[in-house]
Amino acid sequence: MVVAITVLAYVFIPYGYNNQFLLFNMMMYMALAQGLNIIYGYTGYLPFGYVGFFGAGAYGSALVIIYLHWSPFPAVLLGGLAAVLVGMLLIPLFRLSGAYFSIANLAAAEALYYIIANPHLASVTQGPYGISLPQVYDPNAAYWTMLAILVFALILSGLMRRSRFGLALGAIRENPVSAEMAGVNVVRSRAIAWLLSAFIAGVSGAAFGWYISVFYPETVFSLSITVFAIVFVLFGGSGTLLGPLVGTLVLYGAYNYIGISTPQYFQLTYGLLIILLVLFLPSGLTSLLRKRGIDVP
């Protein structure tokens, strides 16, 4: 139901509202929020450096387009695999927990950014001079690809929530030691969730790079991408399918509405809105429904 409504919305809204870039960004943040939800909402690990996967996906995809002349669709998938590879390298970070994990993850994303942006690697990564993909520029195809990624993220998140695997992740979130004693393979389950989350960010980054076609390392490794995704998940309600969707819709919608209608009060209004929501709705919007006994998917 949630998936069907989302698909219908993004298929038909462009006929009445033609700011496709905004709709693309909205889909992208919804997918990223779902990807983050898989690792944070279901296991409790909050990766501040989530944007590292996004950037790895954008660069992985762009480089195979430039050097190997791949077409965009397989390149997007390869972008996801590049992010999975980075995720595998970062699995040892799970030795840390809480804020230590979050900060170490942020440091890893920054390290990746500096490797990509290193001018002495410009012959490989194009360094700080950025990527240009005019040969594959096709915003409409990239738009539909992003919708497919969003649908994939929603289905994956929905399946995980209702599966044994999702229950195992929930047990890890509550108490990893108890989960281990109850027979859950904590290391393997957490790693699978981590890599699935990385894959979603990677394919999203790859589709974003394709959509804008000209970008710099600071564009796809911008910390604001992680911050947005985290805020949307927290605002909507983590650990649910609907929460990140509603969080993105309301907050990103408000962000753009304020930015367009009253740009001079942009930061002030948006900041106040977030403060008020954190103060009065700390468990997210979906907590309002749960308090009334309504099951939130």
């Binding site: 870039f21 905004l22 974003f208 970008f215 710099y216 564009t219």
Partner: peptide, 13 residues
């Protein structure tokens, strides 16, 4: 706000 993602949607706007 110096953000390229936002700049893209505002240019389109």
């Amino acid at each position: 706000q110096s953000q390229t993602g936002l700049a893209g949607s505002l240019y389109t706007q």
